[in-house]
């Protein structure tokens, strides 16, 4: 039984954390072959070969695979699928874009955002914004699965799997990349950060959101946001934590000026310690917070930043 794992590669660079967590998730399913593809993927393939617990790395480099457009990437994975019983990936936007397409081409269901592997055909996944956990058994001959990385530890480095170069398949030519608008950040990446500080509507303005960023910097944390903060333009959309944004489970999550709507909790309620700072003592966030501070955030946050720096 063999597993093909689509490594997370962005602009030629391997996202080690997401990929290594998916390796852990897939480790009980069989021998893992990692697929690194992109316009440039050789360096990512080299980096991926060091993840412990994998058997082989396949590198597919082709201009058509740049930016991981769904149509050519899915075609490549389907061309390799014959040798594998499981086709898996970390549940990133790239994988969510490609894997369902792969599954339909193979006439099998996709199993999205798996939070636990029960056996080779049985998986647990959250539904209804994480308010229920469903265990499903696949009767399909091939299982196409994305893993919720926040619930798995990253596999260690120190391996040395062989790297093999393979060719891309014909590009269906249905789409082309135009441009990226990448939010530059030197803070830790949101989904892999050990500490996350998030701001919500209560922060009030884009200018005042700088206060959240200062607290984050004092803690060496990534910055998150609620939908309200993103919709109001206080923070970019890729900072959004929740059902439709990113799912995080850091050691410490600090929610500032966030009421704690169901959709936000879906993205952070597996954090180890949750701190809430809100002036409304009735805010639902206090029901999941380990430590709650009922206070005006404009006073509490600068004070907290000072005492932690």
């Amino acid at each position: 039984m063999a597993v093909l794992l689509l490594a997370e590669v962005t602009d030629g660079e391997l996202a080690m954390d997401a990929t290594a967590k998916a390796v852990t998730a897939a480790s009980t399913l069989g021998d893992i072959t990692l697929l690194c593809c992109g316009a440039s993927a050789a360096a990512a393939g080299e980096a991926a070969s060091k993840i412990k617990g994998i058997t082989k790395v396949l590198v597919a480099e082709d201009a058509s695979l740049g930016h991981r457009l769904a149509e050519p990437t899915a075609a490549l994975i389907v061309s390799l699928a014959g040798d594998y019983e499981h086709i898996v990936a970390p549940a990133t936007t790239d994988a969510k874009n490609v894997l369902p397409r792969v599954a339909a081409l193979l006439d099998v269901m996709v199993i999205s955002d798996v939070s636990a592997v029960v056996s080779s055909d049985t998986f647990e996944r959250p539904i209804y914004a994480g308010n229920a956990l469903q265990t499903v058994k696949s009767i399909d001959p091939k299982k196409v699965v994305s893993f919720r990385t926040s619930t798995f530890d990253a596999a260690e480095e120190g391996g040395s799997a062989p790297v093999e170069t393979i060719s891309a398949v014909a590009n269906p030519g249905l789409s082309e990349w135009v441009e990226d608008k990448v939010a530059a950040s030197d803070r830790p990446e949101l989904t892999s950060a050990g500490v996350v500080v998030s701001g919500g509507r209560g922060v009030g303005s884009k200018e005042d959101f700088a206060m959240i960023e200062k607290l984050a910097d004092a803690l060496g944390a990534a910055v998150g946001a609620s939908r309200a903060a993103v919709d109001s333009g206080y923070a970019p959309n890729d900072w959004q934590v929740g059902q439709t944004g990113k799912v995080v489970a850091p050691d410490l999550y600090v929610a500032v000026g966030i009421s704690g709507a169901i959709q936000h909790l879906a993205g952070m309620k597996d954090s180890k310690i949750i701190v809430a700072i809100n002036k409304d003592e009735e805010a639902p966030i206090f029901q999941v917070a380990d430590y709650g501070l009922v206070a005006d955030l404009f006073e509490a946050v600068p004070e907290l930043t000072k005492k932690l720096s």
């Binding site: 009767i139 949750i274 917070a289 430590y291 709650g292 907290l304 005492k307």
Partner: peptide, 28 residues
Amino acid sequence: RLQVIGTAEPETRKAGEIVGSVDELVAK
């Protein structure tokens, strides 16, 4: 294609506490 074996409540978090000040929060 996916048979639902069971549906469970997620683990509930144990009750937290309300702290009185930033100092107390930092201490905790």
